[in-house]
Design a binder for these strands. Sequence first.
DNA 1: TACCAGGTAAAAA
DNA 2: TTTTTACATGGT
Length: 289
Amino acid sequence: MKRRTIRLEGPYDLALSLKLQSSFSAEDGADPAVFRAGLRVCGKAAMARAVQKAHGQPMVEVSTDSRHPDEAAAAVEWMLFSSLDLKPFYRAVSGHPVLGKIVKKYHGVKPLRPQTLFEMLVVAVTEQQISMAAARKIRGRVVERFGEAAGDLPVFPAPRALARASIEDLMACGLSRRKAEYIQDLAQKVENGSFDPEGLRDLDDGEVRREVESLRGFGRWSADYLLVRGLGRADVVPVDDLGVRDVVGRYLGDGKRMGAEDVKKALEPLAPFRGLAVYYLFAESRLGG
DNA sequence: TACCAGGTAAAAA
DNA sequence: TTTTTACATGGT
């Protein structure tokens, strides 16, 4: 095991961030204070583990079995979103009647990101239209079949593995024929170099939308979903997203699901941190009760 | 059993 | 141009 230390910007509570993260994806209410992930580092499956030495301390210690520990640490740094400084967000919403209280309650919570934007794009396709629970099961089969393992941790399939998968094999995981085609198309474009998901990191929000929406199977929702969940863009909100409409209605409206236009209006005062604000509303709905 | 779940492209009107 | 429809699985 090699070790590396990552510096964190601003307030950060890793354990609370992980707890929220697992509330979105957990099957078995495991509630780890330690970050563990199967990664692909320089093409090789590897595991990484990260702990915040003391509560609130701006350092995380990463251990990995990768032969490229610096690259593994960089991946963890990306996934933990260490570059995000929450202070300007907290300042901006401290006087807000709802968010002001919530950001105090979940002080230090950051949204975590998948290792790659390729993975995030595939996740987006699987989550179109069907429930998160159904999507998770289907994705589990895709990873089981086409991914690798780093010890007990699954490693998301490389683009090449999904580019070579047949439509029938993808459908056997539970994907619709359409979604199997979307994923195979995407993976083949990445594999042959005609689309570079990781290059989206350098583009502004509008350019990312244009690039993503040019892919078959990726509409407005998927582009916004990638921006906010894959890249962590602080002001992006998929306003037609069912989960967003529910949670904004619950905390900033009359308690019922809102229409997309009302969501826009309700979030206006929270610019330019509307995406982060919605993430904190999810925190309250998942952890606060 | 039916219906809904963090949409999208393609067909039909 | 705008409106409908098919799609796959899992939870309730």
